[in-house]
Every structure is written in structure tokens, then in C-alpha cells.
Deep mutational scan, measured.
Amino acid sequence: YETDHQDYCEVCQQGGEIILCDTCPRAYHLVCLDPELEKAPEGKWSCPHCEKE
């Protein structure tokens, strides 16, 4: 399936195990989030940028 999400972390610009925001195209490593997450959230997730909106 096709997605318009970026394939690198918004914070460190590296690829790998990233989680995708359900609201925007941004993607993040769990450890690059502040506060960092230990595991990917279940269900819908909005990144810090979208949470501020």
C-alpha cells in the first residue's frame, strides 16, 4: 500500500524502526521523542508537532 509518510525520523533524519504520525506525514524513532516511548503506541497516534496544534 502506498503512503506519503517520510521514511526517516523527523528529529535525527535517520531511517530504521520509526513510528508514523496518524495526522501528518512525519515519522519518529521512539527514542527521539521527548519524552521517549518504550514501545509503539497502540491505535491512533499524533506526533508532538500535531499535539501542539
Rank of each mutant, 00 (worst) to 15 (best):
H49Q: 11
I19P: 00
P41S: 13
K44V: 07
H5L: 15
L33S: 14
C9T: 02
C32P: 00
H29S: 00
H49E: 05
G15C: 11
D34Q: 08
I18V: 04
C9D: 02
E10M: 09
R26S: 10
G43A: 06
L33G: 03
E2R: 15
P48W: 10
Q13P: 08
I18E: 03
C47E: 00
C24I: 00
P25D: 10
H49V: 03
D7P: 09
C47W: 02
E42C: 05
C50W: 01
E36M: 12
T23F: 13
I18P: 05
D4S: 08
D34C: 06
C12K: 02
E10Q: 11
C12Y: 00
C21W: 00
L33H: 11
C9H: 03
P48K: 09
E53K: 06
C32D: 01
E10I: 14
C32A: 00
V31G: 12
C12Q: 01
H5K: 11
E17I: 14
L30T: 05
A40F: 15
T23A: 02
A27I: 10
P25K: 13
Y8K: 09
C12W: 00
E51I: 03
K39S: 05
C21I: 00
D4Q: 15
H5M: 15
Q14M: 12
A40K: 05
P41T: 06
E38G: 13
P35R: 08
R26M: 13
D7L: 02
V11C: 14
L20W: 03
G43H: 13
Q14D: 10
H29M: 02
Q14F: 04
S46C: 12
V11L: 14
C50F: 02
P25N: 08
P41F: 06
C47P: 00
E42R: 08
C9E: 02
C50E: 11
E51C: 07
D7Q: 14
E10N: 15
P35D: 11
G15A: 14
C9M: 01
C32F: 00
I18Y: 13
W45Y: 04
D4V: 13
Y8T: 08
L20R: 15
L37A: 07
W45D: 04
Y28V: 12
L33Y: 12
P25G: 10
H29E: 01
T23P: 00
C21G: 01
C21D: 00
P41K: 07
K44L: 10
I18T: 11
E53N: 01
C12R: 00
